[in-house]
């Protein structure tokens, strides 16, 4: 409190003003999404709806437009998150608990993998998927998306596991428990919040992924919401902005809810930033 209070108050006023201005800029595109979805005559411009209606949602909430794509998104994201978490927990255990010669090269490889631009890989990946007849294969794309999420997942999981004290495991070992038993009975229960954070992080990433399913899933009945919404935009987007906005909202709600859950219940916002940054 070394500063005189008038200048401090002026400073606060200025920073609040700038913050508000930035906030308004960030809010405008989001507000359009919200208002257009309830507007019977939505345009591309942000405006207060003259006729509030739920009609846009009614039109969009049909099996072909919304429910099947959302179910596909769910299968894709759940499959990817489950596989990634299981494989990452397994990999993190020896990396965290044993000093082995493979640790260092493996961790460097993992870090290197987190930096690879996956977008850049999609052309060669497409060729490979064609060669192995995996285009339109749900298991194929789930495994691919798991592999691309693995580096960051292993890295986060190892960090979480490092903070689990080793004392309890020693007790289990003395009792003759195998590595797998120790892992599933002792370590995993102790790091449930960490596992939840990784799971949600991977799930949200897969849910929002557009480019990978856009390239690898060609049949409309297999496509997740991210891709079907783009097709909808291409076909009707120039006419029915209200429906596009409604569709976008329905598709976004699960992700927003998961984020709120993670940051409120798991304190995951900081855990995430902590695991990702250096």
């Amino acid at each position: 409190m070394g500063m005189t209070s008038p200048s401090r108050r002026a400073m606060r006023g200025v920073s609040n003003g700038i913050l508000l201005l930035i906030g308004v800029c960030f809010a405008l595109p989001l507000l359009w999404l919200l208002l257009a979805s309830f507007d019977g005559a939505a345009t591309l411009t942000l405006k207060w709806p003259e006729h509030w209606t739920l009609g846009n949602f009614g039109k969009v909430l049909t099996p072909t437009l919304t429910f099947i794509p959302l179910a596909n998104s769910l299968i894709l994201s759940l499959g990817c998150a489950i596989i990634t978490v299981i494989v990452a927990v397994l990999a993190a255990y020896p990396l965290s608990r044993y000093k082995m010669r493979v640790n260092k090269p493996f961790l460097y490889g993992i870090l290197f993998g987190t930096g690879l631009p996956v977008t850049a890989m999609m052309v060669p990946v497409y060729s490979l998927f064609v060669a192995f007849n995996l285009i339109d294969s749900m298991p194929g794309i789930i495994l691919f998306m798991s592999a691309t999420s693995l580096p960051i997942a292993i890295w986060m999981m190892k960090n979480f596991m490092d903070s689990v004290p080793i004392v309890l495991e020693e007790a289990a070992w003395v009792d003759g428990a195998s590595m797998l038993t120790t892992l599933t009975r002792v370590v995993v229960p102790l790091m449930r919040p960490g596992i939840a954070v990784v799971f949600i992080f991977i799930f949200v990433g897969a849910w929002g992924n557009f480019f990978v399913p856009f390239v690898l899933l060609l049949s409309p009945e297999l496509q997740p919401a991210a891709v079907s919404i783009f097709a909808f935009f291409g076909q009707y987007g120039a006419v029915v902005y209200g429906q596009l906005a409604a569709f976008s909202l329905v598709y976004s709600v699960p992700v927003l809810a998961l984020y709120v859950f993670t940051s409120r219940v798991l304190g995951g916002g900081s855990a995430l930033a902590g695991a990702v940054k250096g």
């Binding site: 989001l30 999404l33 849910w207 557009f210 596009l244 976008s248 598709y251 976004s252 927003l256």
Partner: peptide, 12 residues
């Protein structure tokens, strides 16, 4: 704006 799915952010 960051948590929204990429495609939705792109539409907005």
């Amino acid at each position: 704006s960051w948590v929204l799915p990429e495609i939705v952010a792109a539409f907005a």
